[in-house]
């Protein structure tokens, strides 16, 4: 795996290997000192052209727990304001010796463009409406943790699918793992065509809910109202929101997910967001481990053998990490947290 650009680039083996690897990094994250030296000496830069504190922090935390050095580039405080192009920004980071960049951009395909310009590993940290592979992976991981294998499991993705990179990532990755995905939204919030998508689309949430094992709620953005895509938030919530009433009718083992940030009271009722069936906090927690798995896979080689070694606790173990450096864990520049 050279880059992680599109969720659809991952086949079932790729996804399962990454999720299994994530198990190891969840274990690392639960340690007293949640850090391994796997990527010591490597540098991971986050290149965020769009505000996203949670995703950036998640990637940076993941990199630091792997002992990589991190650099943070954000559009609001950078040369982008001076007119620098994406390409020049990417070339600048490459020249600084960065090993991987995590690209977040409001333009679909921006990470693909970056990958075509520089000889650096590129991770898609969310591009426009197109994709958000690590979100898809962490959703799959979280869901697998609750439901077990996803084969034949029914997942409804509800809301603004049209403008949602999370929906596209989830469709690709959850169906790759065998889940059956139904998109639920008014026609104005569905993509113009889902030809070729491994999913079906319906408009009536209440018709779908009795069948589902999990519900993914998408963030409803207020500007969709001005675009005449729905008449009002009130009408949206009444028809497509996970209200207390709807949640009450669902089984105890149905899983509620939300990629955040939530609009409590719009796509999800405040009480439902705090329901034991909601795994929204787990999603965030698992996000760090999933991103550790992705960075590890991209920067530390692909074989299963070093994985087992690198996450093992024993300082005496013969491991790839030990090969990389004789220094104690946490001594690198990235060690300061």
């Amino acid at each position: 795996m050279r880059h992680l650009l599109s969720s659809a680039d991952l086949d079932r083996d790729d996804v399962e290997a990454l999720l299994d690897l994530t198990d190891s990094f969840v274990e690392v994250s639960n340690r007293a000192i949640p850090k391994v030296p796997a990527l010591r000496g490597r540098t991971v830069a986050t290149m965020f052209f769009e505000d996203s504190t949670r995703t950036r922090l998640s990637f940076e935390t993941a990199a630091k727990r792997l002992s990589a050095d991190t650099m943070s580039f954000s559009a609001s405080s950078s040369s982008v304001n001076k007119g620098e192009s994406l390409r020049d920004t990417a070339l600048t980071l490459e020249a600084m010796g960065v090993d991987a960049v995590v690209v977040r951009h409001r333009s679909s395909g921006a990470p693909h463009r970056v990958a075509s310009w520089v000889d650096v590993r590129v991770v898609n940290g969310g591009d426009g409406w197109h994709d958000h592979p690590t979100q898809g992976l962490l959703d799959a991981y979280t869901l697998r943790g609750r439901l077990g294998p996803l084969d034949g499991r029914r997942v409804a993705i509800v809301g603004d699918v049209k403008h949602s990179r999370v929906a596209r990532a989830d469709v690709a990755i959850l169906t790759t793992l065998g889940a059956e995905v139904t998109l639920v939204a008014p026609p104005t919030l569905l993509p113009p065509s889902i030809e070729g998508w491994p999913a079906t689309a319906v408009h009536d949430l209440d018709a779908v809910l009795p069948e589902v094992d999990a519900v993914v709620l998408l963030r409803m953005q207020r500007e969709r109202m001005t675009e005449a895509l729905v008449p009002s938030l009130r009408e949206y919530t009444a028809r497509w929101g996970l209200t207390v009433d709807r949640a009450r009718r669902l089984r105890d083992d149905v899983v509620f997910m939300h990629p955040g940030p939530m609009n409590r009271g719009v796509e999800i009722a405040p009480e439902v967001a705090d329901d034991p069936r909601a795994v929204i906090v787990d999603q965030v927690r698992n996000g760090v481990a999933v991103r550790m798995a992705v960075l590890f896979r991209l920067l530390a080689g692909e074989g299963p053998e070093p994985v087992a070694d690198v996450v093992s606790d024993g300082a005496d173990d013969r491991s790839v990490a030990a090969d990389l450096s004789e220094q104690p864990v946490g001594a690198g520049d990235g060690g300061a947290t």
Partner: peptide, 15 residues
């Protein structure tokens, strides 16, 4: 063009 590819790529379309 608005259609299969614009939907997949997440790019706004021109019908």
């Amino acid at each position: 063009h608005e259609g299969e590819w614009s939907s997949r790529l997440g790019i706004a379309g021109q019908p």
